[in-house]
Design a protein around this nucleic acid. Structure first.
Lengths: 219, 219
DNA sequence: TATTTTTTTTAGACAAATCTAAAACTTATA
DNA sequence: TATAAGTTTTAGATTTGTCTAAAAAAAATA
């Protein structure tokens, strides 16, 4: 139906536009896709012709509802495959992204609906991100990051914002997993780092770069 | 590593060459790949440059050991995914081919080795074809077809030679499944059809086109 | 063996997705 | 508000895999 490249562009635009809310500029897409800005212009024109994005030259792009539907379908497949890899094939949460990037492009509704069923209709992927349903509807992602909390605040970890292997391996190392309960014990203004109590583990201090990438629910 | 197209050509050449034994001609490949003979010439030259096939102009191609290894790896993946679809996702044996054609190109050794383990290291796919191991070694496929038997002969069904949906749906309908025990009761010279007793089902008469596509073990 | 038929290859073109370099446009700044 | 800086687009090429039409080679046949 749509090429691998088209699907990847739509997914990138969806993510960069804050889930379809905002307009995205060419350079941002180029950086996300690790491609030249000129290539982005070409592809945008193509997607625009197919009504998958709204586009005016030099004015950035917004994703159309048709484009959003396709993007969410690819994201659905990506996240369901991630659940499969972790739950059924014992992959670690930091090992699944690359393979899921390939599996997300397999075309078969029957396959994905049966996979969903086989996995028990999961609502979240191994990083805590919500899985869109077959109609392209997705639960809102909470926006509170650990970095927004103050000393004394308690929270529960909801999801990792960045699914890069580096972050996930680090979180494993310091025993912060999804659902973990944390308490902020101190904030260090000098570099923005936080000291935390982690339920069932040793107290730790982590950088602002990390706290900005942990989505939490305040308790 | 190798493009989707290259993998598909190698797979086609492997199959057409009787598992790497014989030389294959351009037109046969073109027909198998549903492409123009000219395209085949182009691709063969490319595969030859990469030492995946041995090729002399106008003389046909043979697959090299490197090419055979790649083809068998793709076939391994294809058949493991077919087992997955049937065993874990309840696909019927006639529904798996198309999806497996996509899944066979996913690149990840970790994925395929874990899938193999998850499935309990199956030796045969849902059509009875042997699954190559990770070293590209494959069990020989028996060559006796039902069409070679005589009235009075008894046999067990080993595999379906053709994995087209049409044949498989038909075999289901007449209750011939893998492992089924059959007895040839009559041969009709006029059209080559066979009358059979099927253990646990009604006697049937089937055409030569079908008997030629059922691999059996004589009992 | 000469000729016809079939098979295979080459020549030249095309579409998709990418690139670099240069031009055009927008935004920021003096 | 003119100019500089940054962003985006166009122009023109390249690579991969495909095509059609024509030429070349091999095989079949008279």
């Amino acid at each position: 139906m749509y090429s691998l490249s088209e699907e990847n562009y739509l997914k990138a635009i969806y993510h960069l536009s804050n889930n379809g809310e905002e307009s995205v500029n060419t350079n941002a897409i180029a950086e996300e896709m690790k491609t030249a800005p000129a290539s982005v212009s070409d592809m945008i024109r193509k997607l625009s012709k197919k009504k998958l994005v709204n586009y005016q030259k030099y004015r950035g792009v917004t994703i159309s509802s048709k484009g959003k539907y396709i993007a969410l379908n690819v994201i659905r497949k990506h996240r369901l495959w991630e659940v499969f890899l972790v739950e059924k094939l014992s992959f670690k949460w930091d090992e699944v992204h690359e393979v899921a990037e390939q599996l997300e492009h397999i075309q078969s509704n029957q396959l994905i609906e049966r996979l969903d069923e086989h996995l028990g209709f999961p609502k979240f992927d191994p990083h805590g991100d919500p899985i869109p349903n077959a109609n392209g509807e997705i639960a809102p992602i909470p926006t509170t990051t650990l970095s927004m909390l103050k000393p004394g605040d308690k929270c529960r970890v909801i999801c990792a914002k960045d699914s890069s292997s580096d972050l996930l391996v680090y979180l494993d190392k310091i025993k912060i997993s999804l659902g973990a309960r944390l308490e902020v014990t101190d904030f260090h203004a000098f570099d923005g780092s936080f000291s935390l109590e982690v339920e069932g583990a040793n107290p730790i201090t982590i950088s602002s770069k990390v706290t900005e990438n942990i989505i939490v629910e305040e308790l």
